[in-house]
Simulated assay, not measured.
Amino acid sequence: MNEEPRLSAQDMIERLEPALSPMTRIRAVAALLAGLAGAVFVGTLWWSEPGPLPGRTQLAFAVFTVFCLAWAGYGGWLLTRRAALFATDRVIAAWIGLVASLTTTGIVTAVAVRRGTGTGPALAVGGLFVAVALVLTVRAHARRAALLRRVRELTGPEE
């Protein structure tokens, strides 16, 4: 008799779910397009500024361009995935959002200090964004851990 080779649990999952869900695909395309559009927009503003810009302004433009490219890279990476991600995509997106929120809050607060306009509003708004990003990061990690636990429960001990 000819026996079929046994498939691992991961192979079965990949065969059951060979493509991204429509909602994940929409999120990926949105991240890719928004990231590219943002990078083009910020890059164009940076390039079109007359005269030499101060170093801090150059740094701010560079940081915002990197954030936009990170989102574009995330969207492109997500579109190329054909296997179950077990919420890895959400963990990555949450970390991009958290780093962007923290950095932007730091930059805006530094500008407020430099201008002497008070840091209250900058820290309040920035703190809100950081808090939301932190909650989303914790939730993404918890969701991924739950999915991985479920996979281990379903597959049993490795042979």
Rank of each mutant, 00 (worst) to 15 (best):
V91H: 07
G75K: 10
A60Y: 09
A83W: 03
W95A: 00
T137K: 02
M12I: 15
L53E: 07
W77L: 08
T155W: 15
G73V: 08
F86L: 12
L123G: 01
A100T: 14
V66G: 00
V108G: 04
V91Y: 04
L32Y: 11
F41Y: 14
S48T: 11
L32W: 14
L36C: 12
T155I: 07
T103I: 09
L154Y: 05
L147E: 12
L154D: 01
R56D: 15
D89Y: 02
W95E: 08
D11T: 12
T119H: 05
R144C: 04
L16E: 04
P157K: 13
F129T: 08
E158M: 13
V66A: 15
G126V: 03
A145N: 02
T80Y: 05
L16G: 11
V108R: 06
A131C: 05
M12A: 10
A112F: 02
Q58M: 13
F64K: 06
A84N: 00
G106Q: 07
M23R: 15
A72T: 05
A83L: 04
V29W: 13
P22I: 09
F67V: 06
L154A: 01
P52Y: 05
L36V: 10
L102H: 05
G55T: 15
R115Y: 12
L102R: 07
D11K: 09
N2R: 12
L53H: 10
A94I: 02
A122L: 02
F129C: 06
T117P: 01
R139S: 06
T80K: 15
Q10D: 12
S21H: 09
G76Y: 10
V40E: 03
E17W: 15
